[in-house]
Computed example of a mutant assay.
Amino acid sequence: MDHRLQTMVEEANRSTLDNIKDWMSQNKLKSVGMVWLSGVASSLAYNWSRPHMKTSVKIMHARVHSQALTLGALLAAAGVEYYGRVHSSKDDNHMTTGQIKD
Score class of each variant (00 low, 15 high):
7 T>E: 10
26 Q>K: 15
2 D>G: 08
35 V>D: 05
33 G>W: 01
13 N>A: 15
94 H>N: 12
9 V>R: 13
59 I>G: 04
60 M>D: 09
49 S>E: 09
33 G>T: 02
60 M>G: 08
54 K>M: 09
35 V>K: 01
54 K>S: 13
98 G>F: 09
29 L>T: 03
47 N>G: 05
40 V>A: 05
70 T>W: 04
79 G>F: 14
11 E>V: 00
22 D>K: 08
68 A>G: 05
65 H>T: 11
40 V>R: 02
76 A>C: 07
28 K>F: 01
88 S>M: 08
37 L>N: 08
49 S>G: 15
46 Y>R: 14
83 Y>Q: 14
60 M>W: 11
15 S>Q: 08
44 L>W: 02
41 A>D: 09
80 V>S: 05
58 K>Y: 01
50 R>I: 10
43 S>W: 02
86 V>I: 14
11 E>Q: 12
33 G>L: 07
101 K>H: 11
9 V>F: 10
88 S>Q: 15
57 V>A: 13
75 L>F: 14
95 M>I: 12
61 H>L: 04
63 R>Y: 07
35 V>S: 05
30 K>A: 10
36 W>M: 14
67 Q>V: 02
5 L>H: 11
13 N>F: 11
9 V>N: 11
97 T>S: 13
57 V>I: 10
15 S>I: 06
62 A>Q: 01
55 T>S: 03
82 Y>R: 13
98 G>H: 12
6 Q>H: 08
80 V>M: 14
32 V>G: 03
20 I>E: 04
87 H>V: 01
1 M>V: 07
27 N>E: 06
101 K>A: 13
56 S>D: 09
93 N>I: 02
82 Y>D: 05
45 A>D: 03
59 I>M: 06
33 G>A: 11
57 V>S: 14
51 P>T: 08
2 D>P: 00
27 N>A: 06
50 R>S: 09
40 V>S: 01
91 D>E: 15
18 D>E: 15
97 T>R: 10
22 D>H: 05
57 V>E: 15
72 G>W: 00
45 A>G: 13
26 Q>F: 06
88 S>V: 07
70 T>N: 01
14 R>N: 02
71 L>Q: 08
29 L>I: 06
27 N>F: 02
49 S>F: 05
46 Y>V: 03
7 T>N: 10
25 S>Y: 02
56 S>G: 07
25 S>M: 15
32 V>Q: 05
51 P>E: 13
